[in-house]
Each structure stands twice: as C-alpha cells, then as structure tokens.
Design a binder for these strands. Structure first.
Lengths: 205, 205
DNA sequence: ATGAATATAAACTAATCGGTTTACTTTCGG
DNA sequence: CCGAAAGTAAACCGATTAGTTTATATTCAT
C-alpha cells in the first residue's frame, strides 16, 4: 500500500493535494466539498489534482484512510500490566478521550458516520485502523489481569467495550450534536474518574 | 407551534409532502436529497411542494423537528419507583436500545450528527426533544431511589449519562459505522444485562 | 353548476458541480 | 542551457441542482 494504490500517481505535489483535500473534506464532508475548493485550498490547479487522482471518490477515500492510519498511531498504547489496574485504566481513559473528543477525532467520526452508506467499507477501515486496535489492547490486558487475579473479568470483550463507552459519557454526544464547542479539563476528569470507578466496582477485586 | 411556524402554509397535502420529505431525507441526508425526488416520493408536484415550504432548508428543518417530536414520544417512559431497581433499569435499557438501535433512530442520529454544522440548533432540538427527556426521567428516578435508600447515587446526572452510554455499548457504534446491518436479540440481551450488572455493581446497595 | 382555490406537468432559469481540454509557463535533470 | 515533464489558469462540457413560471386540470364550497 506504500507504492501505488489503485490508480493513484505519486509526485511532487501529491502531499500538497492530499493536505488540501483533508482540510476541505474534514470541514465540509464529501458532498459539501467542491473539487475547486480543494484545489484552491491545496494551492494547486484542478488539472494537477486530477493528474494525481482519477476522481473525487478516490481522493476522498485516500484522505479518509490516511486519517484512519493517523488515528491508529494515536491509539496504539503500550499498557504496563504491572501497574495497578486503576492507573492502567486511568491512562487508557485519558488517551481515548484525548482522541474521541479532539476536533480531529470528531471530524473523522462525523464523516465516517455520515458517509458510511455512500462508501461501503469506509466504516470498517476506520474501525480496524483505530478503535479496533485500542479495543484489542484492552481485551488482551483484561485477560491477563484476570489470569493474574488483578481483575475479575469473565467477558473481556464486553468489558473493553463498556470501558470505551464509559469514556464517551455525556461529552462525546454533546460535542457531536453541537451542544457545546469544547469541554473543560474538569469535565474530562469527572468522566474519566467516573469510568474508572464504575469499571472497578464491577470488575475489581 | 401548532398553527403556523415561520413561513409554512398548511393545507390538504401538507402531511403528504412531509412524509415524502421524511422518506427521502432520512435515506439520502440533506445534500443528497433532491427536491424533485422528494416531490416524486410525496406524489406531489414540485410547485405544490414549494407552495407549502419556501425552501429546502425549512422543509428539512420541519422534517427533522417532526422526527424529534416522534422520538420524544418513544422516549417518555413512566418509571415505577416501587419496582426493584434491577427491573427499572432493565426496562429502561430495553426502551433506550429499542430506539437507538432502530433503523429510524440511527437515521435521525446520523443526520443530526452529519448536518449539525450546517444547521445550528438542530442538534439541540433533537437533544431536547428526545435524549434529554429520557435523561431527566432517569435522573429524577435516581434521586428518589437514592433518597429512599434503594440505590446509592451521589451524582445522579453522571449516573444517568453512564447508564445511557452503557446501553449503546458495541452495538451502536457498530451499526453507525456499517460494520453490521442489524443486531440479534441475544446481542441486545447481553449488552442490556451487562449495563444493568455494571450499574448495580457501582450504585447498588 | 359555477367560480375561486388548489394542484398538476413540464418547460425554464441561473448556478454549481465533476471532470476535460487547451494553450501557456515553470521546474529540473543531464 | 536545453528539452521533456510537470504545473497553471481559464475556458469549456454535460449533468444536476434549487427554485420559478406557465398553461392546464382538478377540487370543492356555495
């Protein structure tokens, strides 16, 4: 996937085009973004844009998958299973919230949710690049912590999904629906603590 | 709001137009829906459509707010505080899941998330018509149950948001991202039980 | 039945869109 | 410094869009 994917050509202004497309797609969505806008934002002529990407769809897909990759890096977290569970959970919560609540994370999420019908496979690509990785790490940790007797987790997958969901509490829906523009550090702490407390009440020992 | 809102005219074919618009908007989103499509789906001429609604935006807003009202009815749940908490929670979980996971609920959610930038206020309208009502009912119940000593809930708002979020676990994100088309009864039971168990582990007594 | 209100199909406008073409300029390796 | 490759601006194409108009048909209260 590093060389030439599909019909896409590499070259001097490749990244430039991609950055402009990223900016405009993330702001306006797929339908809302016009190719002229993208070319202007990229500081590139429309002809050049079309010399790299055969059409708008593929350009969008390239942007979207690129974002997914970026997210993957954010999400890969080394968990130290020797730390007390409370600290592991706390760190995980902060990491997940930092992504899900960021402007960037919200934009990607919004686009994936909005366009997943028009672009089959986009949802899965996003999922597997980001959330699934984070999920796997958590599951693995819960299994090990259970075996070691540090936690009592029968269904590690359910537990991982629950913890992830607990990290979104209130803040994520609020931001997604435009009920507020951003969240304070205090809000995050309240939710993160709430998630850890609840998780340990259920699965701690 | 029952008589004449904004510039909108009532008349014989009003509901017919609205139903067609509903169908097409819910399927294609705002940008994706064409007015000709809507008129066709409504079984009405374009001129008639425009005699009721001054433009596409207002028609969309009317549909969206209508959906929010519908959702409100779905969500208003009478909670019997004399029942054991476990049963109250179980009923609440099922009700919320029935909405959030339905094709209808997902379409509304998807549209709200996608268009909330283009239509400021849409998110709030949806929120206050639906989720907020459900939330208030839960909060009220948790306060009373705490006072009665049936639960031990210090922060009723946090608890309500957590329980709501626990009802979305795994299934809601999966559906939103198109990772699966629908969920089985077994999936729902697993998640509902997981939510109730976790909640009671934290706030039960 | 009649006349006013309402609905219709279809043509039309002006704008926008994705994508191509053309004629010209810049970049850059050998 | 030269020539091919790459980039540019702008005009252009065909399709589609929101919204209007026109001329005709239907509905409905009186």
């Amino acid at each position: 996937m590093g060389a030439a994917a599909g019909q896409i050509k590499r070259g001097r202004k490749f990244d430039q085009v991609l950055e402009g497309a990223q900016e405009v797609f993330m702001r306006d969505g797929f339908e809302g973004a016009s190719v002229d806008d993208i070319a202007r934002a990229a500081g590139v002529s429309k002809a050049t844009l079309y010399s790299y990407f055969p059409d708008k769809r593929l350009l969008f897909m390239e942007v979207a998958t690129g974002q997914c990759q970026r997210q993957a890096e954010e999400c890969i977290q080394a968990i130290d299973p020797d730390l007390p569970p409370e600290e592991v959970l706390r760190g995980s919560a902060e990491r997940m919230m930092r992504f899900y609540l960021s402007e960037f994370g919200r934009a990607v999420f919004r686009i994936v949710v909005a366009e997943t019908e028009r672009f089959p496979g986009l949802g899965r690509e996003f999922w597997e690049a980001g959330p699934a990785k984070s999920r796997d790490v958590l599951i693995e940790y819960f299994r090990e912590a259970n075996a070691r007797g540090k936690l009592r987790v029968a269904d590690a997958e359910l537990a991982a999904d629950q913890f992830t969901e607990l990290c979104k509490v209130d803040l994520h829906p609020r931001l997604l629906m435009g009920l507020c523009r951003d969240v304070s550090e205090a809000d995050r702490n309240r939710v993160a603590s709430g998630a850890v407390d609840m998780f340990l009440a259920r699965y701690g020992r």
